[in-house]
């Protein structure tokens, strides 16, 4: 057992896996930030703009929500001639995640009463001011748990990027695994991979739960 441990956790392996983890985190963070911005715009359009742009946002959301992420990764990585593979893979993940986040934000927007718009207008707020100061803060407060769950999903979804050989955590794990042939060593690397994701995702899901508990008590 100790031998297996020593064989697998060589300094070069650890460094390689750490680099993979760093890339996974970097991709996740940037994808989540861009997706929240883009997804919010899509949700606002779909909820409050019933003409062309709203329809377009609806079409975008339905298209990405009803097709697999893997399809978009392959499309972006094989059919876009620009950028590095990491950027193209990240783009696919962003396009896909934005659609999901847009639906979450829309759920939050639907819970806001129409009267708030009238009240804000009567106080001289413009539409943009109403959205920024009144509607969106309430909306985001109510959807924090769903958004965080989506962040967990996004972290896990970055593992799909291994299919186009982006050296994120899963890929680096598989590369390391290629050098080992015995069962305990391979299982050990699978365990390292699972634990790596588990630590990130589980701590996030603990945050979700404690937040839910707090808001439930507040009510």
């Amino acid at each position: 057992m100790l031998d297996v441990f020593k064989n697998v956790f060589t300094p070069s392996n650890v460094e390689f896996l750490a680099k993979g983890m760093a890339l996974t985190i970097a991709i996740s963070v940037s994808v989540v930030i861009i997706s929240i911005i883009f997804g919010t715009i899509l949700a606002l359009l779909r909820t409050y703009e019933k003409r062309f742009l709203g329809k377009l946002a609806g079409f975008y959301i339905e298209m990405f929500r009803n097709t697999p992420l893997l399809l978009w990764i392959l499309v972006c990585c094989f059919m876009i001639p620009y950028g590095t593979i990491v950027i193209r893979g990240g783009l696919a993940l962003t396009l896909y995640t934005s659609a999901v986040i847009a639906e979450i934000v829309r759920g939050g927007l639907n819970s806001i009463a129409e009267g708030q718009f009238e009240a804000a207008t009567s106080q001289g707020f413009t539409l943009i001011q109403t959205l920024i100061y009144i509607v969106l803060p309430q909306c985001f407060k109510s959807i924090v748990p769903s958004l965080l769950s989506q962040v967990i999903t996004t972290v896990k979804d970055t593992s799909f990027l291994q299919v186009v050989a982006i050296p994120e955590y899963t890929r680096s794990g598989f590369v390391v695994m290629g050098r080992y042939t015995t069962t305990p060593e391979v299982f050990m690397i699978f365990a390292v991979l699972a634990v790596g994701y588990f630590v990130i995702c589980f701590s996030l899901s603990c945050v979700v739960r404690s937040y839910q508990k707090r808001t439930q008590i507040a009510r």
């Binding site: 896990k156 979804d157 699972a194 994701y197």
Partner: peptide, 11 residues
């Protein structure tokens, strides 16, 4: 639930 929800399907 925690194990399967917090590790990627790919792995």
């Amino acid at each position: 639930v925690e194990f399967f929800q917090n590790t990627p399907l790919v792995i």
